[in-house]
């Protein structure tokens, strides 16, 4: 495999990791606020904060990893995305900052204020919306380059059906992934009332997720024909994704094996996300950045891959320890430790 393929695969894997862990976190914020205003917070908020408190810093790092990595492997992405995304990414940073400080100020500082709970819930939806702009832009047609000046075409972006359907897809996926994870976590903790409540939410958000996925396909076919047709050629990948979706949703509906249900849903997104990624190949930003032409020099690529493997050898055992202590320790989940 060439450096650029290894590089983009690793980065895509990290972006997928972020998609899962961040979705759980973002959705939990929304659900926590929703539960508060519908007076159900006594049922569910304890379980949310017990899981999220020890792992929140870890979530952010996945994102930083992705963009530091993409600038490392494909330096021209710093130039194009950096120039074009100044405004949307700055808003993304502000939202992430509000959210990150929530943990510090609320969980460790004082008792919960309504304003902060609202911000926590709202940022959970706005962050995925603002980050998904990068995916829309990557399809091409939203950036102009004149006299060496790269700028974003705001009008095209805000009037684009593709942009809005990607935003909607991002939001409903966040809620679906998060609800199915919290269902699993509640079942680990044997918290029946929380389990029943969140299971309903997970089932509810499943349908919009599939509808928005199909809508986005249609919008994409109008914007970037090549990418769309590549996706049709990879029909079996999306078929697998659909299959895992059905397994996950059936288990949730029957009401058993929530762990397997969540894994199936993770696999659903894994195949959809990689299918989409493979269909984009070889473009990171259509038509400006194509991974073969814009990959960094071989010595840097090699160094990054070595650093990456070394880092993983260090991180994987640490992550397993973290998960064993907080996620898979039933006593901790129940709140006994």
């Amino acid at each position: 495999m060439s450096y650029e393929v290894i590089g983009i695969t690793v980065l895509w894997l990290f972006l997928y990791g972020y998609l899962i862990v961040a979705s759980i976190d973002f959705g939990a914020g929304f659900f926590a606020y929703y539960a508060k205003i519908t007076k159900q917070d006594h049922i569910i908020n304890q379980i949310i904060s017990r899981y999220l408190s020890p792992v929140w810093e870890v979530t952010n790092v996945f994102l930083v990893f992705f963009f530091v990595g993409i600038v490392g492997f494909f330096p021209s992405s710093a130039y194009y995305y950096g120039s074009a995304l100044l405004v949307p990414a700055s808003f993304g940073i502000i939202l992430l900052a509000i959210r990150g400080s929530f943990y510090a100020f609320e969980n460790y500082g004082s008792k919960q204020s309504n304003v902060y709970m609202f911000l926590y819930g709202a940022t959970g939806l706005f962050i995925p919306a603002s980050l998904s702009v990068a995916l829309t832009i990557s399809e091409g047609g939203y950036i102009s380059e004149q006299n060496g000046q790269v700028s974003l075409k705001y009008f095209e972006l805000f009037t684009s059906p593709l942009a809005w359907s990607i935003v909607a897809l991002a939001i409903v996926s966040v809620l679906f992934i998060s609800a199915s994870f919290i269902t699993y976590y509640a079942s680990r903790a044997k918290d029946i009332s929380a389990l029943q409540l969140v299971r309903k939410w997970a089932l509810f958000w499943a349908t919009p997720t599939i509808i928005m996925a199909l809508t986005t396909m249609i919008a994409l076919s109008q914007k970037n024909r090549v990418n769309y047709e590549n996706m049709l050629d990879l029909w079996w990948v999306f078929g697998l994704s659909m299959g895992f979706f059905l397994i996950g949703i059936s288990l949730l509906y029957i009401g058993r094996n929530y762990g397997i249900a969540f894994i199936a849903i993770m696999l659903q997104f894994f195949f959809a996300f990689f299918g989409y990624g493979m269909a984009k190949y070889p473009y990171v930003l259509y038509p400006y950045i194509n991974i073969e032409d814009s990959v960094t020099n071989p010595s840097m690529a090699m160094a990054l891959i070595v650093a990456f493997i070394g880092g993983l050898l260090l991180l994987i055992p640490s992550l397993i320890l973290l998960m064993r202590l907080f996620l898979f320790d039933a006593d901790y989940a129940k709140g006994k430790k």
Partner: peptide, 23 residues
């Protein structure tokens, strides 16, 4: 990247390694 895109494009080729390891 947002404020210094030209710097990161040039320097990313040489100094991306420690940035990556810092994460």
């Amino acid at each position: 990247s947002l404020v210094w895109p030209n710097f990161m494009q040039l320097a990313g080729n040489v100094i991306a390694l420690p940035l990556f390891m810092e994460v």
